[in-house]
Nucleic acid binder design. Structure first.
Lengths: 246, 246
DNA sequence: GCAATCCCTTGATCTGGGTCAATGCACGGT
DNA sequence: ACCGTGCATTGACCCAGATCAAGGGATTGC
């Protein structure tokens, strides 16, 4: 596992506190977490870990975007997880990794040594509980994603992806979407294709299609404006309960 | 939630003990589990629970096959979970159900009241741990499934499904596949289609295709014989690490 | 024995999205 | 300024799998 060691910081300032493992810890527990914690950064494009690697850390994403991918020998690739800030990597009780983990943008991870982390789990029940909650959330997300992969059309897939990114985009003012209709796509066309089970050509065509139909506006190829969110939802065939896809 | 109440049995004889929640319990813990436990059966085809239902139990599948499905308004259906004996339904901390649960064959569930079950989790850490393990297993399975849905061809999908059923089929002698090449499919063509993100016509055609190519033999439409397991694996493009799809 | 279902198969045809190939940028390096 | 390299777009064509439609057994009830 490559990546540059950055610094050991105090967990109380950990940017992921709001959603990740340390959110409910008291001072004592925090100091224990701090003792086994360190930060690493990876440049965009770098492989963070490969399928089959022994994984002796667990980590939270602090900044940037990473992906989990399954690859068949012939090169076909399916993304199986999109890791945005506050998402968790790795699992207690599993020594080896099932997927390739890749940094899509520059990524900062908040890492914990796996062994002592697991030991801590035994002492701190609410950590275990938090991990279970996160695993169940991921499971729900994975299942919504399965609906998308198995039954949605290319256009619906793109629309769902845009909605997903919108929901997970935190604007400088701290608000989440709704107020703004401007999105920065954190991933390339290829990454989207691997996410959606499409080819990059189809992704590209769908974007131009949506643009020509006036559903979205493109500014460069990473900025999307969605004037009429409702219109997009209609495209999505969205279950409107919002789903749990991240 | 319909279903006929069967009997309250002693947990030590619970057929799911080997994989489900009570596997590591001592006598005291077992008696606590027994206090909140009861069995229910559902006839084939019956809806066990609908998306949005308040779910005040959790349960293990003791016998039979059930499915978890996500349905879009226009009728498109994607199965997101296949529940075979020893699989677990429901989740602590979630009051409502995200998916439709349907009995495919006659199903017997070993049910626990959700509230007291959750209370028990707090007292019995290894139960919590077991649930986390199961959730992570399901997550791995879901992710393999995503690869299947997003990137595999119809034939590969069928082959993967057959392998999956083979792995989960327990023969009367207690052995799992390998020794036998004869499978009983627990699900209909339609259910398979919803599993694989295909139409029933395509599923049917793939079965005849595999038969004509000599890869499988059909006896009726629920019995499959696979003379050459290797041949099927070649079809599958199987990652050969076996994957974790159930 | 005869409908009526249910589930499955098979055929004919269509089409969404894949494949192959060319072109268009935006960039960093020399 | 000029290339090279890495995305993204666009076009032409094709094909796996969907769709539409017609039977083909089993099983059940009358």
């Amino acid at each position: 596992m490559a990546g540059e060691l950055v610094a050991t910081q105090d967990c109380s300032s950990c940017p992921i506190r709001h959603r990740a493992v340390c959110a409910r810890c008291d001072e004592d527990e925090l100091s224990k977490l701090n003792a086994i914690k360190f930060y690493k950064t990876y440049p965009a494009g770098q492989t963070i870990a490969m399928r089959g690697d022994a994984l002796n850390i667990v980590a939270s994403v602090v900044a940037g975007t990473a992906t989990l991918e399954r690859v068949i020998e012939d090169g076909r690739t399916q993304m199986v997880g999109l890791l945005l800030p506050s998402d968790f990597i790795g699992r207690p009780g599993r020594a080896t990794l099932q997927y390739d983990v890749t940094a899509v943008s520059d990524v900062t991870l908040c890492c914990f040594q796996r062994k002592p982390f697991e030991a801590l789990l035994v002492d701190v029940p609410h950590l275990q509980q938090r991990l279970l909650e996160m695993a169940l959330d991921e499971l729900d997300a994975a299942r919504d994603w399965m609906l998308l992969l198995g039954r949605k059309t290319a256009r619906e897939k793109i629309a769902s992806l845009l909605m997903l990114i919108a929901k997970r985009t935190v604007h400088p003012d701290g608000k989440v979407m709704g107020d703004t209709t401007r999105l920065e796509l954190p991933i390339s066309r290829e990454t989207m294709a691997n996410f959606l089970g499409l080819t990059i050509e189809t992704v590209s065509r769908q974007f131009t299609g949506l643009r020509k139909d006036g559903v979205i506006e493109l500014d460069g190829n990473r900025i999307v404006r969605i004037p009429d969110l409702e219109g997009l939802l209609v495209e999505t065939g969205d279950d409107s309960d919002g789903g749990t896809l991240f």
